[in-house]
Amino acid sequence: MTFSVPAILEAEIDELITHYPVKRSASLMLLHAIQEHFGHVSREAIEWVALKLGLQPINIYELVTFYPMFRQEPLGKTHIKVCRTLSCALAGSGVLRDHFCKKLGLDSHKHGAQTTPDGKFTVEFVECLADCGNAPVVMVNEDLATKVTASQADQIMSKGRAN
């Protein structure tokens, strides 16, 4: 399948490029726009962005591999990021992640992002989400859930199952 960017997204991308005196600066914003639309950044997308900005694919590829938010494979529809850094850890984020993993049939001893076989959920530990006063915090796709209890976690999962 060939990679194609819808006209409306390309118009958004062209506008983003005008924000910078040097096109290359737009790289991260373009990758965000691509990932928001396609769910991940494929090899073809990397080449497309590079061409768009007059760069070599390696210039974009090295960003996708450096910045943790970009992913080259599709993730689950509901992406659950549990904060693991100290304030959240003190508030029980380790137990919370285990709870998500257990309920979703994932291995809590495994490191890194894990996706359920049905593609509905991805669960991962992430570093400080900068809302430590409301620990433990969890990002569910673009939304931040605060002071998350086991029962709130269950709600997040039942909402995700319905998606």
């Binding site: 290359r24 991260l28 210039n59 910045y67 970009f70």
Partner: peptide, 20 residues
Amino acid sequence: RGAGAYICGEETGLIESLEG
């Protein structure tokens, strides 16, 4: 927008990041 790297908070790292 950054993309999840703590080092971007250091000002020269941030500038590199803003340069793409």
